[in-house]
Design a protein around this nucleic acid. Structure first.
Lengths: 135, 135
DNA sequence: CTGACTGCAAACGTTTTGCACGGTA
DNA sequence: TACCGTGCAAAACGTTTGCAGTCAG
């Protein structure tokens, strides 16, 4: 794990403690919604404001190294952009996991049927996770 | 195309002109966001309120014959529930199309990898549609 | 006739904005 | 030093709620 200030520099955002902390937390938790982010950042920065979090998340989205994941029946979560992947959400406990899927066949089918030039995918599955299933 | 009041009765919602019109428009356009719905309904009902639309859409979602489709970088749209299908959105003109895809292989793979019991899927592709590609 | 629906206005929660101050480069 | 980021407060936005009058069953 390399320093997160490099990531900020790389995307020409000034390195501030708040930003480093945001990237740290996203990196640690994988996906977080605004409230969760606010809650953990309050520990390090008792006077941080929601406005700061919104401004920074939006800046990171604009620089294209954070993305918003929209999930049915839930608040959006944010994550650092890495290799393309899909999401699976537990409808009982809310846990979100990443999955790498080979979508090439599917994308070929979609392109053929719709004549769209596919640039992006957003796949989200939901169901019961292993733990919740056994309860 | 059969009368949309039957659909409302089927799901035990009282048949009001506003509700029939909402179902009509969703049926005609496939997917609409709240604003678009409001705009077209204003023609028939000059004094309809947004509250009515929200209340009715929520009632229909609760009765499970309308669903919300969350789309990256766009407002949610609403559609009548029919067979399971995926969506593809043009990133240039915003057009949304439906696609039927065979997801059984993919779902089997996801189940195997994650040990989740998959109940639902939400796939949304984006890219350039045929028309926007040729511009 | 009764309970549900409508439209209005007010309330609500979330996100954005403007500004003065402080920190980064 | 010059600009950008922060935190606060206020504003903007989308959505929900409460209520009085009306309508569907």
């Amino acid at each position: 794990m390399y320093s997160h200030s490099n990531l900020l520099k790389e995307y020409s955002l000034k390195v501030t403690p708040q930003r480093v902390a945001i990237v740290d937390e996203l990196s640690k938790h994988g996906h977080m919604n605004i409230d969760a982010l606010y809650k953990v950042l309050l520990v390090k920065f008792p006077s941080i404001s929601l406005a700061t979090i919104y401004k920074n998340i939006n800046a990171m989205i604009e620089k294209v190294f954070v993305s918003e994941v929209k999930i049915a029946d839930k608040k959006s979560v944010y994550e650092l952009i890495k290799e393309e992947h899909s999401h699976i959400v537990c409808s009982s406990c809310g846990k979100i996991e990443d999955m790498s899927l080979d979508l090439s066949t599917l994308i070929a089918e979609v392109s053929k049927n719709t004549k769209f030039d596919i640039k992006d995918t957003a796949l989200c599955f939901s169901g019961l996770c292993k733990d919740c299933k056994n309860k």
